[in-house]
Computed example of a mutant assay.
Amino acid sequence: MSTGAAPPAQPARAPAPAVPPARHRTEADRPAPRPPQPGEETHEVLADRPGVLVVRHGDTVVKTHTAGTDREALTRRLRTAAHPALRGVLLPPLPFDDRGTLLLTGADGRATTRWPHGTPVDPHRPEAAPWQQAARLLAGLHTVPPQELPCTPPPFRGPRKVALAVRRMRTAVTAAAGAQAEETAGPAPAVPAQPAHPAAPGPPPGQAPVLPQAAAPVVERAAALLPSWATGAAPAPRADTLCHGDLHLGQLVHRPDGGGWLLIDVDDMGLGDPAWDLARPAAWFAAGLLAPETWAAFLTAYQAAGGTAVHTADDPWPQLDVPARALTVQTAALAVAKAATGRRVLDAVEQVVVDACARMATPPRPSAPRTGSVG
């Protein structure tokens, strides 16, 4: 496909790794669970991260949401996900009782929801990653008329999470620096990054390890160049479309009833700019983490299914540029925060996204517009 003029957010691409990440270092990376035996009731922790607990009980999944969750907004998101207009697109929540209650308050005061269990994407089979199916699901979500829904969805939370990620990075780096300063034996050597992610074998040969303290200012400079709406500090210029708000391969499950792939996790869903939902794969492609042919197939499938986020597949960057930059900043900030918390250097994938931030913050050299074919 022709890209038209080279977008400022699209850096020189590095070779794609063997395994495009579903989402770097998350529950999507854990091995596939052992299938239950006949008659066996399955109890399994699917996700246990700060503020969120997801537990499977047989064919049901119970999610405990973060403290301080806006219950009114979450209720509207749940009602939207349960509406027939989203059938075949979003995994619908399960009611807790015959009255159709979709949200309960736990003993600790946190919101709890209930969902059907589905099989997640296998991170160890990159050749089977359902990118085109994800694109079609997004197109289906983006073409649902909001006026047909049972309530007005709240604003999507995508831009707000960019600012939260940058704040988390600052806190983690400051805490790590303070802990190091308190060590009586002097500065401790950084712990090498562990190659837990199949796409992160460690720093490339000849490349010096990068400390989180050195990477954080790079991410800060890229974040400072984002428009205010991309960090949630101002209303988005477009807010007329139902968006997922946090699309990655870990947000898809396959139901055993033959219903195909479905989107999950409505915590960030709401009205916003649909380009945001395409921004993470766009950012990965620009950074070299997603193969050109995979990106081309994703974008083609999205437009063929009627998606409205981009005007043309020949040059989608006028719509994707700012969201892709924002998602690059968010990904890099979270990567630096995790490295700082773990008192280690950045691994190879983390370095790639920080390098992308460095290119974003570097003024481009004057050059003639470039046209060509990608993928």
Rank of each mutant, 00 (worst) to 15 (best):
G4N: 07
P8S: 13
Q10P: 00
P15D: 11
P17V: 02
V19K: 07
A22T: 03
R30I: 02
A32W: 13
R34E: 14
E41F: 15
H43K: 08
G51N: 04
G68C: 00
D70A: 01
L74N: 01
T80Q: 05
T80D: 09
H83L: 02
A85R: 15
A85Q: 14
F96R: 00
L104Q: 14
T112R: 04
R114M: 06
P120H: 06
H124C: 07
P130W: 05
A134Y: 00
R136L: 09
L137I: 11
A139G: 00
T152L: 14
P159S: 11
A165G: 03
A165Y: 00
R168K: 13
A177L: 15
A179C: 08
E182I: 05
P187M: 08
A200I: 00
P204S: 13
A215L: 08
A215R: 01
R221I: 02
T231L: 09
A236Y: 06
P237K: 02
D240L: 12
C243R: 01
L247N: 00
R255A: 12
D257P: 11
L263H: 09
V266E: 04
D267V: 07
D268V: 04
D268N: 12
P274K: 06
W276H: 14
D277A: 07
D277Y: 13
D277F: 12
A286V: 02
L289F: 02
L299K: 05
A301W: 06
G306T: 08
G307V: 13
T308E: 12
D321Y: 03
P323M: 09
A332H: 12
K338W: 13
T341W: 00
A348T: 13
V349P: 00
P363E: 10
V374F: 01
